[in-house]
Design a binder for these strands. Sequence first.
DNA 1: TAGTTGTTATATAATGAGTATAACACATAA
DNA 2: TTATGTGTTATACTCATTATATAACAACTA
Lengths: 129, 129
Amino acid sequence: MFIEINPHDETPIYTQLMYQIKKNIVLYGDSLEKDLPSVRSLASDLGINMHTVNKAYNRLVEEGVLSKSKRGYFIQEQSSLIQHENVKEAMLEKLTQIQIDADIYGVSEQTISEWLESIKIQMKEEVEK
Amino acid sequence: MFIEINPHDETPIYTQLMYQIKKNIVLYGDSLEKDLPSVRSLASDLGINMHTVNKAYNRLVEEGVLSKSKRGYFIQEQSSLIQHENVKEAMLEKLTQIQIDADIYGVSEQTISEWLESIKIQMKEEVEK
DNA sequence: TAGTTGTTATATAATGAGTATAACACATAA
DNA sequence: TTATGTGTTATACTCATTATATAACAACTA
């Protein structure tokens, strides 16, 4: 797990953490340990509070990304299409906002595609380091 | 101006208002009155507070979408490419999150395109009503 | 037994969102 | 000139969220 938290970012720490974990799963998939670090150890490593990690973990369980047992949290193996309507709604909300901003700022469809492409490339580069 | 505020939505009222105004400009462009309703009248119409409208208006001024004078706020004519770095950063942040969620939930690139297309169609339908 | 897991409970602080009034300066229309 | 309507500023209050800090608990494990 390679996790970076930006304390100056306006997005909440637990949200950043959720996306960092998802990103790790996407990038390193099967080569990752199924067991996640305990809430206390990860919190200690990142210099944040235990409950903040716990919140991120539990949200990911609700989204179906993680599972939990009394032994700890671990990655939920799945090629599950979106079964959680909330996630889809959140994606649609973001897409709508992006579309409106693109329209009003004259950002072309092609530019959006290029941005998306560079995001993917950037992620692939991270995995090769 | 056709503005809808959803009080049950988790996104702040002033943010919803910002996007509703942008949406109006995108959809109805030149046929819109340049002058915006006063902060008090719009607040009254929507059943919300004056300062909430004021916040949305001023954010849009910062983004370059609106202008203001002592007479009131009005739509800023411009086909300005993104001069405000903050807006681009916000769009990239959203795009990154969408990309990660799409990857982890197995939402294909084509599906994303289809969602975007239906968003556009839906917006066009609104203008024809 | 000792240590680690997640869980629960309390408490506190900081911030953001939203509302509620009030007063002010300035411009405009009567 | 007066009245009204602009945006602006200031103050105060509520509420929810975020984040932290401790502490204690039950259950599992070495």
